[in-house]
Design a binder for these strands. Structure first.
Length: 641
DNA sequence: GTTTCTAATATTTTT
DNA sequence: TATTAGAAAC
């Protein structure tokens, strides 16, 4: 057997060290392009090869994509036959938590069929809660309150505990009232939001020692990817799981922490050595991706941050080309510059799939898109509205949720009048409060309600005897959903296509029993939000936010909109902490590039319907001049800065 | 009860 | 500028 050679083969000294340090706590500080995933997967493969049972190993990621990639790599290292299906847990934190919670829902006061509410559902419930409490939504924007509540949940602060901390100030008091009302409504609907999935598991582990012990015994070897992105709840879960056997390996890079706004706390990675004093630290600083010039530029930028772990990336590759810096008149000029450059690169033989255009905000994609369209350059925009977030898909999902979780008021509310069937808001309330007067069918509304109930019970009995995809077809037909969509607007066709897409997506679950299939479908719909199902990269340029680019690499990277107020974003300009996150974001953008980087900014820019004039981004002046190449015609604009 | 219009609002968002 | 949520009108 040469499996061992193939697992360790090709790894550098440090990577090998990280792979072989299987017992005890290990912190792997992995710079961009340093073979982080490779090391992590080799480590797991090595454990299995050493004889550790796959079911005793867990690897936690943040995205399904990362989990998939890891699984694939482990398989190719070991050969698929060595891993019994489902034995090795490689998945997201949320997926793990759902699995735990379906087991232990009752102990926490939920039914095992609980619904998972996305951010939209959550916001709706928060608004309801605010209305119920008589709180002015103008004075307290619901979205902002939701963020605060989300932050509290990430910090594992319950409404009760927050009551003590809130004091008598207006704002915290209001937040507390909404938080309490929101939590009640969630419970009433037997639903959890994304934050609850984590918080409830953390609470379960804390309260129920025997449950925790069982998982501690099950997961002897714990791995966490992107550790800098963990929030306090995730940190608590990992710590609890690892407490007993202490075989915990975390991988991450504090310099790439860009999700602070979502509750991620990169101090978790900075404090790892304090949490686990005997931790072995491995620094992966050899970069296999970029030229030294790109690495130097990135390093200069990130060095302006104060809170960080020192590490200097190096590469065996040569210096490579300088970064190109260009000024444009406005965002259209910038987009044309990008598109023209891509076109000439393409003519010189560059592959379009190896080119990415990165921007700070999604709205910036528009100008780029137009320039690409004009030149017939193929592109794909990553991000924006996700498939499962589309109205039509959410409608169908709401039906399925009501069928599987009868308590789900959020979904019931969504479908009771979708398509319109003559049941209004008032009767919705009476629908909930009435139980004895079910025979009162004399009014129109009562008749409509009765018809709705018949529909639901018909659907419920049909669900168990049809394959998921057939059932959804049946559901759509029965509810005359297509007629409802067909309102004459130009989106109607597209919406219907999405419904059809959803049907074929549901066919993936046809092998399971009808009920199991629908349940799994719902779970995946909530937890693996894919962008465009079935859309592959192909030979085209990728347009996306810098956030979305994390973990990816391209030969050529354009970073556009490098202006004060755009990148760094205006909302971060007055907070040193936020500015540091912007800087890390810039670092992430730069280090996506293998060979070439094009930086650009616009002198004027249309934003929010007006014209803005912003100076070039401070990040540009943080890159040493000798690493930059500035086309002559732009010299004036740039030296003015 | 449903449609249409107005007015407010506009980072990033792995789940 | 574009979207979208909530109010007024049908």
């Amino acid at each position: 057997m040469h499996a061992k050679d193939s697992i360790l083969g090709g790894l550098n000294e440090r990577q090998t060290e990280a792979v072989l340090a299987t017992d005890g706590p290990v912190l792997i500080l992995a710079g961009p392009g340093s073979g982080k995933t490779r090391t992590l997967t080799a480590r797991i493969a090595h454990l299995i090869q050493k004889g550790v049972l796959p079911e005793r190993i867990i690897a936690l990621t943040f995205t399904n994509k990362a989990a998939e990639e890891m699984r694939a790599r482990i398989k190719s290292l070991l050969g698929a036959e060595h891993i019994p299906y489902g034995a090795l847990f490689v998945g997201t934190f949320h997926a793990l938590c759902v699995r735990v919670l379906r087991q232990h829902a009752v102990a926490l006061g939920y039914s095992p069929h609980f619904s998972i509410f996305d951010d939209d559902d959550a916001l709706g419930l928060i608004k309801e809660g605010m209305k119920g409490e008589g709180i002015n939504t103008k004075q307290f924007p619901p979205g902002m309150i939701r963020n605060v509540i989300s932050g509290l949940k990430n910090e594992l602060i319950s409404p009760e505990r927050y009551a003590d901390e809130a004091g008598s100030d207006m704002f915290p008091k209001t937040v507390h009232r909404v938080y309490r009302a929101y939590a009640e409504r969630l419970k009433e609907s037997n639903g959890m939001d994304f934050d609850d999935l984590l918080m409830n598991v953390a609470v379960l582990f804390e309260r129920t020692q025997n449950v925790l012990s069982a998982y501690q015994e099950r997961f002897l070897y714990i791995h966490v990817d992107e550790y800098q992105d963990t929030n306090h709840a995730q940190y608590t879960i990992v710590r609890a799981l690892a407490q007993k056997h202490r075989n915990i390996a975390v991988v991450g890079d504090d310099a790439q922490a860009i999700y602070g706004f979502r509750g991620a706390d990169f101090r978790n990675i900075l404090n790892f050595e304090k949490d686990w004093p005997d931790a072995k630290i491995v620094v992966l600083d050899e970069n296999y991706r970029s030229t030294q010039t790109i690495l130097d530029a990135a390093r200069e930028v990130i060095s302006k941050n104060t809170f960080k772990k020192e590490k200097k990336l190096w590469t065996k590759q040569g210096k490579g080309e300088r970064l190109t810096l260009t000024a444009a008149e406005d965002e259209r000029g910038e987009a044309e510059y990008v598109a023209d450059s891509v076109r000439s690169l393409h003519k010189e033989g560059a592959k379009l799939r190896e080119v990415a255009v990165l921007y700070r905000t999604n709205a910036q994609s528009r100008a780029i898109e137009e320039a690409f369209l004009e030149r017939d350059l193929p592109y794909i925009i990553i991000g924006g509205i996700r498939f499962y977030e589309r109205k039509e898909i959410k409608d169908i999902i709401a039906y399925l949720r009501v069928l599987t979780n009868p308590q789900d008021l959020v979904s019931l509310k969504r479908i009771i009048n979708t398509p319109p069937r003559g049941i209004g808001k008032i009767s919705f309330l009476s629908y909930l409060s009435r139980d004895t007067k079910g025979d009162m069918r004399h009014t129109k509304k009562e008749a409509a309600l009765a018809a709705f109930e018949d529909l639901i019970s018909d659907l419920r009995s049909t669900l168990v005897r049809m394959q998921p995809s057939d059932f959804i077809k049946y559901l759509v037909k029965k509810t005359r959903y297509r007629e409802y969509l067909d309102d004459g607007t130009q989106n109607a066709d597209e919406r219907w296509e999405n419904v059809e897409e959803f049907v074929s997506l549901a066919a993936r679950y046809n092998d399971l029993s009808p009920e199991e299939g629908i349940k799994k479908l719902l779970e995946d719909a909530a937890l693996l939000m894919e962008n465009e199902p079935g859309e592959s990269a192909g030979e085209r340029v990728t347009l996306m936010t810098v956030h979305a680019a994390k973990g990816l690499e391209f030969s050529t990277v354009f970073i556009v909109g490098l202006e004060e107020g755009v990148f760094p974003h205006s909302k971060s300009l007055f907070s040193p902490k936020d500015l540091e996150e912007e800087r890390r974001l810039c670092y992430v953008g730069l280090t996506r590039a293998k060979k070439r980087v094009y930086l650009s900014f616009a002198l004027r820019r249309m934003r929010f319907g007006g014209i803005e004039v912003n100076p070039p981004s401070r990040f540009l002046s943080e890159i040493p001049e000798e690493l930059l190449h500035v086309p002559e015609r732009d010299l004036d604009e740039i030296t003015i800065d």
